[in-house]
């Protein structure tokens, strides 16, 4: 199978701290790759390096065989990579519909079509009553769901999810699951960061474990669970 995203040996430091220390990652098309690891192990930093918020000091990032290193965040997004944030970042003062439209403002489809689609997406997840409200009115979980709707309307091929289930009501979480599965069925690819091991084990095709900016293990559930370095990383401190 072709790999969609290829991260090779990237390094990113903040002052003296090496947040990423030679990370390799290969994401297959239409797969769900999970990244787990203790707090501060560099997971969010990895996403920031993929979508152009940070530029790694060393290494390569290629998407569909093309280097995306040094590209600006909006250019990366326009190539088809979307993401959600650990703490959802909806536009608080802006109508919920416009919030969903944000990633398609640069598309050439007519606004009326886009608006209709945004409202349909809101209906899908039972949030249509918020259509004209503002982003700040939504609960934390609803905000995270809205971020996923953005990825949906934008038709991103690769979606980076940073802790989508943290602090989300169990009912909403089930909905989230369905949506992710549905998007995968439609051919989308995911990188999922989560502390929720149950979700990780249910959803993932591959799991990668980070500690102190390095990959310490990769594989399926059993391999991870029995890996000594993983046990040490989680229980050692």
């Amino acid at each position: 199978m072709a790999s969609l995203l290829e991260v090779e040996n990237i390094e990113k430091s903040f002052g003296g701290l090496k947040a990423l220390d030679g990370i390799d990652l290969s994401v297959e098309e239409n797969s769900i790759t999970s990244v787990i690891g203790p707090n501060g192990s560099g997971k969010t930093t990895l996403l920031n390096c993929i979508n152009g918020i940070y530029v790694p000091e060393k290494g390569h990032v290629t998407y569909r065989g093309r280097s995306i290193l040094g590209k600006k965040p909006h250019e990366v997004a326009r190539m088809g990579i979307g993401r959600t944030f650990q703490v959802a970042r909806v536009f608080k003062k802006i109508p919920v519909v416009d919030n969903i439209l944000a990633p398609v403002l640069s598309s050439h489809r007519p606004m009326t079509d886009l608006r209709r689609e945004a409202v349909e997406l809101l209906k899908r997840v039972g949030m249509e009553k918020f259509t004209d409200g503002i982003g700040g009115d939504l609960s934390g979980g609803q905000q995270k769901l809205l971020e996923l709707l953005r990825a949906w309307i934008a038709d991103f091929d690769l979606i980076l999810l940073d802790e989508p289930f943290a602090g989300v009501h169990p009912e909403l979480k089930a909905l989230f699951f369905e949506e992710i599965r549905e998007l995968q069925r439609l051919g989308k690819t995911f990188v999922l960061i989560s502390h929720d091991m149950h979700s990780v084990y249910t959803l993932s095709d591959t799991i990668v474990v980070f500690d102190l900016g390095k990959v310490i293990a990769r594989g399926q559930q059993e391999e991870i669970q029995n890996n000594e370095r993983v046990i040490e990383a989680y229980l050692g401190n």
Binding site: H74, A102, L105
Partner: peptide
Amino acid sequence: AAAAVMGINV
């Protein structure tokens, strides 16, 4: 930053 990540050319 969020706008940029969504493909908006700031």
